[in-house]
Design a protein around this nucleic acid. Structure first.
Length: 475
RNA sequence: GGCGCCAUAGCCAAGCGGUAAGGCACGGGUCUGCAAAACCCUGAUCGGCGGUUCGAAUCCGCCUGGCGCCUCCA
């Protein structure tokens, strides 16, 4: 039997049993990106984390309504577009297309909807208007600010007190605001900026309001899971709560606040503003996107993870191990003792149980992955020992299925070798080489293997014949 | 200054009161013409000091060292 699903909630700081507003349906909103530069691996980590959560929820039988926004208008976009001599719209379109390519490469399922700020202006204006009407916001010179003091529970997500925030002294003082902590819902347009009509004049939305409006428009106002990187807890998510709950007049706006730890690069947060980023397309271009996914999954989603190239390559090696174990047709030698005793079927069932126990416990993907590796070893151990090959095949199926839940495809990477234009020629070379081997012409046979290796083709000799595959690009 | 997180074998990383998962790398074996793969074997008492407990990596306190948020950020 499958254990209850338990998830850590940032707001309560506790692991709670997961329940939904509507039975069988999960409304999940994950803060997306502001497309003003290529996505880096930190964004990739977040996308992988929430994609894995979504996949597991779906595996558990939930229908997941997954919304991820694009903040397609803001200061940085305007600035960057101007610098590049293009329009904000053109740049945004290009980068959104890039984002979808990048997330595809990481095997991220497409969200149910990708709302964009610029397409939600009426809903945003309506919400801002409603907040003014309820006394939670006020307009000044074309700007509109949320009155933080009007929302008594402000700070409940990030566990801050207003007085502590004030003493931070890093809040710029704006005389026009009633209170230094008040934040913008609507910003008056400056000359030349993209802008929209509103009751307060030409302008555009503030940073936080979009997500509230989109949750209202696309997920019926309240959500079961609201996610994002840990750096969004304050002020972004705190402000979202204030806006949404003040507007809706009820709580909670989100039942589970889920935040992933941040990816670090050389012991420092990776961030677009710091410029210390590694782009997703760089690793995808090296064929290491699946390895990156495994690297992320081998650490708990709430813990920070340091990105290193060594770590990435280590994950690739581990992934190869899983792929080999899952490969059905490979009649590996490896006549390990195996023997009777434990049987694969039982070990597969055990791995599955461990997998679900781990995933149900606040998405402990490292534990789930460990179960996968153990199952892989059990398969390899029994693989060649004759016996119940049907059980071994079934275990391979279990391994592939469980890995699939994590978004790790283990299916034959050998397929692309067979499809390659070079295949007939490589096959011919291997055929000739095996004739040489039969004649014990080792030196020439090895020269062929070495020559192929130099050209990126790895050859392996097994008891039933030789196989080849494209070696990983670069290394 | 305020709030919070982390510190486990060479590296990465689980663990949530009962005597340390998993991955990578290293070394020794088996198999192999060789190589590769696979399998087997080998390694930590959990940053330091106190405390609570029959019992703590797991709870509490202090210290040391990292990091995050408080400003745009996944």
């Amino acid at each position: 039997m499958t254990p209850d699903l338990r998830i850590y909630n940032t707001q309560t700081r506790q692991i709670e049993t997961f329940t939904t507003i509507e039975p069988g349906v999960v409304r999940m909103y994950v803060c997306g990106v502001t497309p003003y530069a290529s996505a880096h691996v930190g964004h990739g980590m977040s996308a992988i984390v929430f994609d894995t959560i979504r996949r597991y929820l779906e595996h558990r039988g939930f229908r997941v309504r997954h919304a991820q926004n694009f903040t397609d208008i803001d200061d940085k976009i305007i600035l960057r577009a101007a610098r590049e001599g293009t329009t904000p719209q053109a740049m945004v379109e290009r980068l959104i297309a890039e984002w979808l390519e990048d997330t595809d490469s990481l095997n991220i399922l497409r969200a149910t909807v990708y709302p964009r700020v610029t397409q939600e202006i009426p809903a945003i204006v309506a919400m801002v208007d409603g907040l003014i009407a309820r006394g939670h916001a006020y307009a000044v010179d074309g700007d509109v600010y949320f009155r933080v003091r009007s929302f008594p529970s402000y700070g409940k997500l990030s566990h801050r007190r207003l007085d502590d925030l004030l003493s931070g002294a890093r809040i710029e003082v704006d005389e026009r605001k009633d209170d230094p902590l008040d934040f913008a819902l609507w910003k008056a347009a400056k000359p030349g900026e993209p802008s929209w009509d509103s009751p307060w004049g030409q302008g555009r939305p503030g940073w936080h309001i979009e997500c509230s409006a989109m949750c209202a428009a696309h997920l019926d106002g309240a959500v079961d899971i609201h996610g994002g990187g840990a750096d969004l807890i304050f002020p972004h998510h705190e402000n979202e709560i204030a806006q949404s709950e003040a507007f809706l007049g009820r709580e909670p706006f989100a039942r589970f606040w889920v935040h992933n730890g941040l990816l670090q690069l050389s012991d420092q947060k990776m961030s677009k503003s710091l410029g210390n980023m590694v782009r997703i397309r760089e690793i995808a271009g090296r064929g290491l996107a699946p390895a990156f996914r495994l690297m992320v999954l081998q650490s708990h989603y709430r813990a920070p993870l340091t990105y290193t190239d060594d770590g990435l390559l280590a994950a690739e090696n581990g992934l190869d191990r899983l792929r080999a174990a899952a490969r059905a047709a490979a009649p590996n030698d490896g006549e390990g003792g195996a023997g009777a005793g434990s049987n694969v079927a039982a070990l597969a069932a055990e791995a599955e149980t461990r997998f679900h126990a781990a995933m149900s416990d606040d998405f402990d993907t490292p534990g789930a992955v460990a179960a996968l590796f153990d199952l892989g070893r059990a398969i390899n151990r029994h693989g060649a020992s004759g016996g119940a090959t049907a059980d071994v095949d079934a275990a391979r199926g279990t391994l592939r299925d469980l890995a699939g839940i994590l978004g790790l495809p283990l299916s034959d990477t050998g397929a692309d070798a067979a499809d390659s234009d070079a295949a007939p020629f490589v096959d011919l070379l291997l055929d000739l080489r095996n004739q040489l081997r039969a004649a014990k012409q080792w030196a020439i046979a090895d020269a062929v293997r070495d020559g192929l290796a130099e050209r990126g083709i790895a050859v392996e000799d097994g008891p039933t014949g030789s196989t080849w595959s494209w070696a990983r690009r670069d290394a």
